[in-house]
Design a protein around this nucleic acid. Structure first.
Lengths: 356, 356
DNA sequence: CTGAAAGCGCTTACAG
DNA sequence: CTGAAAGCGCTTACAG
């Protein structure tokens, strides 16, 4: 070490002085520090990491970055990490093999399917400490995994409650054709709606209230290489965006004759895609049909109409995931399952109607 | 090394086998590899980095993550990095001291003011290889810095050309009160407009066409800790968003009597904030006033109206920045100044008018 | 209070 | 073709 030579002490003393750990005589310490300062010395972080077996860096996997959900998750995560002296590494390439080369202490998956894939492949013999945000508390992985759980039963029922309180009885559902989360929310919605129908003594086919749509091969959310967001010639939007699924759903909705007075959407992005397309075709929201989303995306503020939504406080989801992961790393034994609490955010897309 | 012991060879041979470098007898290599595989061995990336003095990780500084511009920049950057075997570390905390602890080979600044701040402080004695995306080719830092330059003279004139070709002569400008970029674009616009006026033989006060606005202390873009995007109770949007500056500008616009028939906006976000607010107040775009943005954000597709804009191909900006940085790291001597080419993206917010 | 030594887990000349 | 040695740049017991 240059500093050690210049200050005529051992490397050990420099280390003690710079990190002010252990004993160094006061004058010596000052001399070392002033020399270090003069030479612009900074401990090599890689060497420090090798020694401590810690990088204080975390990895966050998301499958893309244009969805407001993902942006909010990242923002919450990076804030939480910063508070505890860590940094977040956002990786939107689901190329899990690369994880072996990343200099990180642990991993966060903002989507459970990503975590499952990782555990089933690379994770089998390179399993870093990890946390996953999941839509299903009952998910069982190859081994126990710490998770932050979106309380879907509450989310879906809270949305339905809100709409019912405003007189809606025929409450439809718009969701992607495929995907585990989609199935979970569909089941919850269906159970509730059938229950409501039986209360009312009615025998109805609730499935007539559903609109499903899909774009491309959306079953596979593992995107190795994220596409360009904006094509050089036109601004085509990535095929997998929920916004586009919402547009597609709107097309189906307009073709059929869905009897719903209100539609609960799989998420806010989808709701906006839906609204955009039906309004272009003369259907007013909420005049002709009420629309409710799920998530609570920040872009609600950017649109001409704020979507009424069940917020799952995505930033908090990200922050909690990070806190759990750091707790693991610092041996603070967090709970395996961490629930989050949804909440209604009022907006402009639901109207009250007379019950009949 | 466990593998070395189990395979009864030296650590050196294991290294050679695993990296398949140097000579290892075929059978021995196979034995090592199978043992390594059985034990689930992976070289410790920190140790590898210490040895090679490379992490293959890069740091990208941005001052927040909600702006579509930043999202696109990141997407372009991470794609470019991935192609060359690097990863990008997105840091939205402008806490440059932390850079000393990051395990990265180089840094990218997507905003020149961030780079200047870094060079003037921490960078003085901890200067990593770096690249900056800048609005001004003439920027002189404390030392020469590789830069990717947004060709503002072309951007501004291209926008004005587009509007003039559609009959507009009184072309206004909306921009933030403060900031270097704002001043640059203002000057370019002013020169051009005065020139046009003199061609026409007119003597006009072009400044009557300007709308300026600001939110909070926006002069300081160095955000140590990014705020929550969504507040738990209401969805207030961060004060520094250009969208909100656009709304504020709209208020001023409505108060005064700006004679412009078309307004060039500092960026697309601002344009949307402006459009949102004036339309709420009965002013139609482009019916009553044409609006043009700069940037080419992907959210154009999400809105009811696509803003007409001068795209600076932000993804390409990010990708180029990364390529230049990697060229530096790999000793490929990239140019110091790298220009990018703007381009018009048509939209729904400009109408042609009769010249008079 | 301070330094020599060992070690973090690798890789790469250097001998053989 | 293979191993012992040195070294990447630190930190931390261990002696003194």
């Amino acid at each position: 070490m240059d500093v050690a030579r210049a200050a005529e002490v051992s490397a050990a003393s420099v280390s003690r002085a710079v990190n002010n750990s252990g004993y160094v005589k006061k004058e010596v310490k000052e001399r070392i520090l002033s020399v270090a300062n003069r030479l612009g010395y900074n401990p090599n972080p890689i060497a420090v990491s090798l020694q401590s077996q810690k990088t204080r860096q975390l990895l966050l996997y998301q499958n893309e970055i244009t969805a407001p959900y993902n942006i909010q998750f990242f923002n919450g995560a990076t804030r939480a990490a910063y508070k505890r002296g860590y940094s977040i590494f956002l990786d939107i390439h689901c190329d899990f093999d690369k994880i072996k080369r990343h200099l990180v202490d642990g991993v966060i998956f903002s989507l459970d399917v990503l975590a499952e894939k990782y555990i089933g492949t690379v994770g089998a013999n390179y399993l870093l400490p990890m946390v996953v945000t999941t839509n299903d508390a009952s998910l069982v992985y190859a081994r126990p995994v710490h998770s932050v759980v979106i309380d879907n039963p509450r989310v879906v029922n809270m949305g339905i409650d809100y709409l019912m309180a405003r007189g809606h009885q025929r409450i439809g559902l718009i969701l992607p054709e495929h995907g585990k989360h989609s199935k979970i929310r569909y089941k919850l919605w269906k159970n509730r709606m059938e229950q409501e129908a039986s209360y009312a003594g009615a025998k109805v086919n609730v499935d007539a209230l559903v609109v499903r749509a899909e774009i491309g091969d959306t079953d596979d959310v593992l995107i190795l290489e994220p596409p360009l967001i904006t094509q050089p010639s036109d601004d085509n939007f990535a095929a997998y965006s929920s916004f586009n699924i919402g547009k597609r759903a709107a097309r189906r909705y307009l073709e059929g004759k869905n009897p719903a007075t209100a539609l609960l959407c799989f998420n806010d992005d989808l709701a906006y895609g839906f609204i955009r397309h039906v309004e272009k075709n003369g259907v007013r929201v909420p005049g002709d049909i009420s629309v409710m989303g799920i998530d609570g995306i920040y872009l609600r503020e950017w649109f001409e109409k704020k979507v009424t939504t069940v917020s799952i406080d995505v930033e908090n989801l990200g922050a909690t995931s990070v806190d759990v992961l750091i707790d693991i790393l610092e041996d603070k034994k967090p709970k395996y399952i961490n629930w989050t609490v949804p909440k209604i955010l009022e907006g402009d897309t639901v109207k009250s109607i007379d019950k009949r």
